[in-house]
């Protein structure tokens, strides 16, 4: 019998494999296929499972700090005081930087968007029919995204 499961890159994946090996499955009976990632995707924020480092955060951070400095400086003169103007400058700078980044980078994420739920890794485990339930439980318990059982020798 074969089990096929999909996973994220995550420490739980290694724990799943350790558990499967504890059940008496040899290393030669396990095949792991790490998938390459599709480039050219952009997010506002990177997430824990998807980080390309080209998210739309850089411009916001730069202009945010500039806006905050200017807000604090002019806040000493303006009525509302430096703190409120500093925060306004920060928010305005982040917004401006984000909009500039967005307009320059020609976002195409409607089509090419990689969702967090996409699999990054496939595992294939060959085992005896009586072990199938245990192995399946070990895989599900360690955050498998999906598990399939196919008959084989």
């Amino acid at each position: 019998m074969y089990l096929i499961a999909s996973f994220h890159y995550c420490l739980h994946t290694e724990l799943a494999l350790a558990k499967v090996e504890e059940l008496g499955i040899k290393k030669e009976q396990i095949l792991a296929v790490p998938l390459g990632k599709k480039g050219e995707t952009r997010h506002i924020f990177d997430t824990i499972h998807h980080a390309d480092g080209i998210s739309l955060f850089d411009g916001g951070a730069i202009l945010g700090s500039v806006g905050m400095v200017l807000g604090v400086i002019y806040g000493f003169i303006l009525t509302w005081g430096p703190i409120i103007w500093g925060l306004i400058g920060l928010m305005g700078g982040i917004l401006l930087g984000f909009l500039l980044d967005l307009s320059f980078s020609k976002v195409r994420h409607s089509k090419e968007r990689v969702k967090d739920k996409d699999a990054e890794l496939f595992l294939m485990v060959q085992c005896d029919p009586q072990q199938v339930e245990d192995v399946k439980k070990a895989l599900w318990d360690h955050l498998a995204l999906g598990v399939a059982v196919i008959p084989g020798k």
Binding site: K27, E28, Q29, I30, L31, A32, V33, M124, Q126, K153
Partner: peptide
């Protein structure tokens, strides 16, 4: 670790 050529 897990791409053994012995995998059937």
């Amino acid at each position: 670790q897990y791409q053994s050529p012995l995998f059937i």
